[in-house]
Design a protein around this nucleic acid. Structure first.
Lengths: 135, 135
DNA sequence: TATACTGAACTAGTTAACTAGGTCAGTAAG
DNA sequence: CTTACTGACCTAGTTAACTAGTTCAGTATA
């Protein structure tokens, strides 16, 4: 998943989603450190302030914890919480897209067809996901 | 479908989506007129300029046509085009949500479960929407 | 003709998101 | 100690989206 500056979704929320799915997938495990503000900002080619805003949001959600002068670390129940939130997010997105399709007059079977036809491309995108994990 | 000013999706795009699904559902048929700029803006409690921006977008997409001094009218192939776009939009939304869920480590069967569990609530939302759609 | 609609087209101002750049404080290691 | 990292904080400026208000032009009807 890359950052799309031209999306109508704010970049800091895209970063929140990116880190949250990485935590859920086990790329960063409980107690481990995340890449630093400045490293992430250069990697994602984004302003450090934007990354910090994403960190703030993840702290607020309890997924990560800050140790001043050291770095950001995945909270104890971070992996579990991230997975739960990923499921909620996906379900909400499915519900919204399905509601829009039904409102446009499509029937339920057609909506199921569209979902199934969307799955293969989604699987391809989710494959080569692993990036370097810092110590 | 209501307008949500606090959504990260621009209001004018929400209006585009709203009108497009109404056209696809047959609420406004080919050749028929849409509510005027000022009527829509007061109904949706939105600035007229924002509605006009939505009209511009729908004109650009070829779903509606403008008759200056008269109003906006659904294009000849408007219903068909709107349905096609609704399917594309739904499929893209499904693909994106599914890709995010898979990237978070969920397996395909779990993603299907989330989709199926989202369908009932989506159906409920679309029921109260039908204000006069013939069979 | 007058009037009451319609879309189109401006200017001006606000807010959220983002960028740019810097500073300060805490931590770890040489 | 110094050096080099870390997050936290701050000001200033830009852009897109939206609001507010007005004006102009085309159309229909009485």
């Amino acid at each position: 998943m890359r950052i799309e500056p031209d999306s109508h979704v704010p970049v800091y929320l895209q970063i929140v989603e990116l880190l949250r799915s990485s935590i859920a997938a086990g790329v960063y495990r409980a107690g481990e450190g995340l890449p630093s503000l400045r490293v992430l900002s250069t990697d994602l080619r984004v302003n450090p302030n934007t990354v910090q805003r994403a960190f703030d949001e993840l702290c607020r959600q309890g997924l990560i914890e800050s140790r001043r002068g050291v770095g950001m670390f995945v909270a104890k129940r971070g992996t579990h919480s991230a997975t739960a939130r990923a499921e909620e997010t996906a379900q909400a997105a499915f519900a919204q897209a399905a509601a829009a399709a039904l409102a446009a007059g499509l029937d339920v079977d057609r909506v199921r067809e569209l979902f199934e036809s969307a799955l293969p491309s989604a699987s391809k995108k989710s494959r080569t996901k692993k990036t370097g994990v810092p110590s």
